[in-house]
Design a protein around this nucleic acid. Structure first.
Lengths: 224, 224
DNA sequence: ATCGAATGAATTCTGATTCATTCGTGACTG
DNA sequence: CAGTCACGAATGAATCAGAATTCATTCGAT
């Protein structure tokens, strides 16, 4: 009876504990992200993260085994955001070419919203262990998936010139990243909206089959 | 007379000193580059650099005020290589479109030869101070110059569709970098030669004016 | 004999990690 | 119902480690 009693209690207890623990984890990751997006993981001490989160250093070690795990958590958080937001943006579009543009725009938007975090991914992923790097690569490939799918669809429907969907998808992913990576170069030339429109127009003039260009005239913009 | 004598001596002395000092500087930078390209600047101690170069730690501080200056030296060295090699590769070509391809190929080649160093640039440039970052940005822009010039020439001769030369040049620079940045993704799909050909073909199908495509049929390759 | 070059042990700093201690809460008992 | 017991959560000062940097000393060439 006593045993059963503690078991019955245990379930809700356990749930409550997990909820509180998840909240703490999120709180710590948010604090770490705020700081690291500004100064990189090496520029941020565990003490600083603790201060930012309003807790003590020791507590961090209850939730993350060491600093590397904390950094990895921050990066995975950003990639998770992308993996959620991009499919959502693509979904409403019907036409494959318009899906391509939607995916690319959404990707750019997420990059713009997380510019520093994208840089963090490039800066820090090499400091992680093999396992961590694999996770990050897998997630990144996953974020490119909607774009790749749209391109493949468009190819299948004969809307594009012959090309390798995986390569084009990754080129575009990289160009979206470049809004963060080379912001110092692009930002003086154009604002974010121009960047997206211009790059999307380049992509389309490159990829869309000549027979179908007229269908998408509205997407081509008026460069230079 | 004594004064004049020491002055007369001073000139050759000074030259010899500078020569030896330059050699040391190069020796140290090469050792540092070898190590850092493998493990990033944070993974390499001054002691390790000294060992690799076969000198003592203290000596490094005679040539570089601190570690940051050493890291900065390594990065600037890579960019200097690029600034030298790329113009040389472009120079022999006459036709602007072929100059574009030559510049892009050369850029890719330098990236391939210095894959780890390119990564180093992305990883470490944020750890430098404002002055160092400015230097690096300036040099990077300079390496994109030959490509940008070729594009502008081609534009002026009406060989391309209307586009912004600066943006296209930087997109291509980034795609060349991607051979290092995303090597884990591209390398399983294709070898280096395929990468260059495929990406160059994409660029041309994007940029070359339809009226002139037939002129460059040999460059388009046969994708997918 | 002089002087810059080179050495490397000692010093200092920085910041990650630990752990003995305290806190807060919920449960049990008399 | 007050008292207190148990236990996980939280603290933060102390420890530890790993480098960066310094500097008193030695070396080698002119």
């Amino acid at each position: 009876m006593v045993l059963k009693g503690t078991e019955a209690m245990a379930a809700p207890d356990e749930a409550a504990r997990r909820a509180r623990s998840d909240a703490r984890t999120r709180q710590l990751l948010e604090a770490a992200a705020r700081l690291m997006e500004r100064s990189g993981s090496h520029g941020v001490s565990m003490q600083a993260v603790a201060d930012e989160a309003g807790v003590s250093v020791g507590l961090i070690y209850r939730y993350f085994a060491n600093k590397q795990e904390l950094v990895q958590g921050v990066i995975l958080g950003v990639l998770d955001d992308m993996a959620r937001l991009i499919p959502a943006a693509v979904e409403p579009e019907e036409d494959p070419v318009r899906r391509m543009v939607a995916a690319f725009s959404a990707y750019c938007q997420v990059v713009d919203d997380n510019r520093e975090a994208v840089l963090l991914t490039y800066r820090e992923s090499n400091t992680l262990d093999e396992e961590g790097r694999r996770l990050i690569k897998d997630l990144e490939v996953k974020t490119a998936q909607p774009l790749g799918d749209a391109i493949q669809e468009a190819l299948d429907q004969g809307l594009l010139v012959p090309l390798d969907a995986r390569v084009l998808a990754y080129d575009l992913l990289l160009i979206a990243h470049s809004w963060a990576l080379k912001h110092w170069y692009f930002a003086p030339l154009m604002d974010f909206a121009d960047f997206v429109e211009h790059q999307a127009a380049l992509m389309l003039s490159m990829a869309v089959h000549p027979d179908h260009r007229s269908t998408y005239a509205d997407l081509f913009g008026t460069p230079a």
